[in-house]
Simulated scan of single mutants.
Amino acid sequence: MTYPPSGGTPDPYQPAQPYGQSSDPTTPYNAAPDPISGQPGGYPPPTSGQPYGQPPPYGQPPYGQPGPYGQPVYVQTPGTNTMAILALVFAFIFAPVSIILGHIAKKQIRQSGEQGDGLATAGLWLGYIFTGLMVLVCIGYGIIIAFAVSNSSSTY
């Protein structure tokens, strides 16, 4: 009987043969030379300059030598403007300061190219809104106090 059985289908009770292994159990695995490189065993020739079978060197290359992809490029992107962050924070703490910080931040961002223009704009808007609300509340208190004083009786 021949292996695999005639008919083209492998025997379902036999384990599958690994890729590249002959169906003849007496032939060692990958003993035939590779048709592309001509190396015995079908392995490609070593390309790293290391002796065949040795692992490649690990770790970083010595100082001053570029790695396999060249030297890394470090690009510093401008950060977020600190005044813009403070403008947004102070909009909730003390709004008039937020207006001042927001204008300073927008000027610095135009000059330096930093990020944070949206934060400065939000700080300005909130600063103006909360300052306006604070002024309206103070005027309302003044009206209430004036009304209370004018209607109070001073007959003691």
Rank of each mutant, 00 (worst) to 15 (best):
P62F: 04
D34G: 14
P25K: 02
Y63N: 08
G123M: 07
S153E: 13
G8S: 07
S22F: 09
G20P: 08
L101K: 03
S6G: 10
V89Q: 12
P62G: 12
I145Y: 12
V75T: 14
Y128L: 04
I104P: 06
G79W: 02
A105E: 01
G102M: 08
L86G: 01
L101R: 07
P55L: 02
P61I: 03
P40C: 01
E114L: 02
Q108C: 07
Y3V: 13
G132Y: 09
P56M: 02
A87Q: 06
I36E: 00
F90P: 02
D117F: 13
T155M: 05
S154M: 12
Y29G: 07
R110H: 13
G113S: 01
Y13F: 12
T27P: 02
G123R: 02
S154P: 02
Y52C: 04
Y19V: 07
L133Y: 04
Y19K: 06
I144L: 05
T121P: 00
S98H: 08
A148D: 05
G42D: 04
A146S: 12
I109K: 04
G67M: 01
F90S: 05
P96L: 01
F94V: 15
G118F: 01
E114M: 03
H103F: 11
P44D: 11
V75I: 15
G70Y: 05
P25I: 11
T77S: 08
D11V: 15
L119E: 07
F130T: 10
T121A: 06
D34N: 13
I144F: 04
H103K: 14
G7T: 09
P33S: 12
T47H: 08
P62W: 05
A95W: 00
S153R: 14
P56L: 04
G59H: 04
I100W: 08
M134F: 09
I109F: 04
W125E: 12
T9W: 10
G49T: 15
Q54N: 10
Y156T: 12
Y141K: 07
T121G: 03
A105H: 03
P45S: 10
I100V: 00
I99W: 00
M83D: 14
T82I: 14
Q71A: 15
P4A: 04
D24S: 01
G142T: 10
H103S: 07
